[in-house]
Amino acid sequence: MTDADAFTLVSRALPDGSVVGPPQLVASQGGQNLSPDLAWSGAPEGTRSFAVTCYDPDAPTGSGFWHWIAWDVPAATTSLPAGLEREHPGIRQAVNDFGNPGYDGPEPPAGPPHRYVFTVHALPVEHLDADPAAPHVAARFAIFTQQLASTSFTATYQVSEEHTRG
């Protein structure tokens, strides 16, 4: 087993393969718009901080939809609570594709289910050289080009045609 194989991520609110429930959905979907709790273990040697992302690869944009990009999570941290504040001390969060800093939950168009990929990235730096006010692609570039390892789980959510006619 390699270090990357030992790196795992779980959530009580969103077990891998589950359907996103009201606490994590945006208000327009009847939700509370709270980020899920996350807990990870087995980070590789040399980890000095973590980043967290949530991405919908099924969004009809040609490039997916980014719901959450956070970084500078201290290396001693192994979990985040549900409902992490948009301005959490010590953790930097980019403006997501909704135009807000921090987490915003699913709000897909009616149609087939969308996947929401939550990932924790182990980084070899204590502080990522990225500006939260800049477009999040800069932070994502820094995260993805430097990561030592990552671990993910996927949840789904679907809006039915009937829901939109309501």
Results as ranks from 00 to 15, higher is better:
T164S: 06
D129N: 06
F65D: 00
T119Y: 01
L123P: 02
A70V: 00
R48L: 10
A94S: 14
H121D: 11
Q146P: 03
V120H: 11
V26T: 07
R140N: 10
A39Y: 01
E161Y: 10
A122S: 11
P124F: 08
T156M: 12
V137W: 12
Q29I: 03
D16L: 04
E126P: 08
P135Y: 11
F50M: 09
M1L: 12
T8I: 01
E162F: 13
D16V: 09
Q29R: 12
R140V: 13
Q32G: 07
A39I: 06
G42D: 10
F50H: 11
D5R: 12
E162P: 04
W68A: 10
Y103V: 10
A51G: 11
E161C: 11
A4Y: 01
A27I: 05
Q93L: 04
G30W: 09
T47D: 11
R165T: 15
D131P: 07
V19G: 03
W40G: 00
L80T: 13
T77K: 04
C54N: 10
A133G: 13
W71K: 02
N96C: 05
P113N: 07
A94L: 00
A59E: 14
V52F: 00
A13K: 06
P36W: 02
V20S: 13
V137T: 13
G62K: 08
W40H: 00
V137I: 15
V19Y: 05
A134S: 02
N96T: 04
Y55C: 03
P22N: 06
Q29F: 02
D72T: 03
P57Q: 07
T61Y: 01
T154V: 15
S35F: 02
P108V: 12
P113M: 14
P81I: 14
T145D: 03
V10R: 07
Y103R: 05
E107M: 13
D3N: 11
F7Q: 08
A59R: 09
A39L: 02
S49R: 10
G46F: 08
T61Q: 15
S160V: 08
L38Q: 04
R92E: 11
D104Q: 14
E107Q: 15
A43Y: 12
D3Q: 15
A134N: 00
G64F: 02
D3Y: 11
V20I: 15
M1I: 09
A76Q: 06
P89L: 03
F153Q: 08
E107Y: 13
G31E: 05
L80K: 05
Q24C: 11
Y157P: 01
Q147P: 07
V120F: 12
S11I: 00
F118M: 06
G21I: 07
D104E: 15
A155P: 07
T151V: 08
F144C: 10
W40V: 00
R140I: 15
S41A: 14
A59L: 01
A122Q: 12
F153Y: 14
H67G: 00
T164C: 00
